[in-house]
């Protein structure tokens, strides 16, 4: 555990909590892609199956349970409790174009051809692209609420901090996981355009809106 890893985890946690609170307080999931949230729930479910097979640490177990719990709570709020506010017409990204290739890739390129390892690999690949339905939705409507942009910033920052964590671990522990690193780079790159808009617009007090 190093400072980048810890702050990365906390940034991830902050993102998840921000989204849950935004939906809960406003009693609305307008502007939020339910498809991205289903993908994240799928990511956590397939990645944290090792909860049943091995114990790493209390921190590890607690965070995994919180992430999974919050992911399903978010999906529940969007598709059940506040379903009337869900903007399904703008959430039109075809997720099968992500899930099918990612499934194929995780069977082809993995560390070990075992069910748990393939599912872990699937979750890593899927997480790297799971935000695309949300970004697609914003590009379609041309705007995002400020609180939604804070959520996206924390979510992008988390993976960027993990990149520093992997650099740290490579230098000081000789550890590296090529699958996680490549997917993490892809994931972080997908946020770059958004990071630029966040810094140039949102941090200067303007609403994030894209030119028509």
């Amino acid at each position: 555990m190093n400072i980048f890893r810890l702050t990365g985890d906390l940034s991830h946690l902050a993102a998840i909590i921000i989204l849950l609170l935004k939906i809960w307080k406003s009693r609305s999931c307008a502007g939020i892609s339910g498809k991205s949230q289903i993908l994240f729930a799928l990511v956590f479910t397939t990645r944290y199956l090792d909860l049943f097979t091995s114990f790493i640490s209390l921190y590890n177990t607690c965070m995994k349970l919180i992430y999974i719990g919050c992911a399903y709570a978010t999906v529940y709020l969007i598709y059940a409790k506040f379903r009337a506010t869900y903007d399904g017409n703008h959430d039109s990204f075809r997720v099968e174009f992500l899930v099918v290739p990612v499934g194929g890739l995780s069977v082809l390129i993995n560390h070990d051809f075992s069910p748990l390892e393939i599912l872990w690999t699937f979750s890593i690949y899927l997480e790297s692209v799971a935000i695309l339905p949300q970004l697609f939705m914003i590009s379609k409507t041309g705007e995002a609420e400020t609180i939604t942009t804070h959520y996206l910033f924390c979510l992008g920052l988390y993976r960027a901090l993990y990149l520093f964590n992997w650099i740290w671990r490579f230098y000081f522990e000789g550890f590296f996981d090529m699958i996680a690193i490549v997917a993490g780079v892809v994931q972080t790159v997908l946020y770059c355009d958004f990071f630029y808009l966040y810094v140039t617009k949102v941090l200067k007090g303007k609403k994030l809106s894209l030119p028509a």
Binding site: S54, I56, S57, N60, M63, Y67, D112, L116, A180
Partner: peptide, 10 residues
């Protein structure tokens, strides 16, 4: 350590 062991990172 086996790769199929539990993962430390989240």
């Amino acid at each position: 350590k086996e790769v199929t062991d539990g993962k430390d990172e989240l």
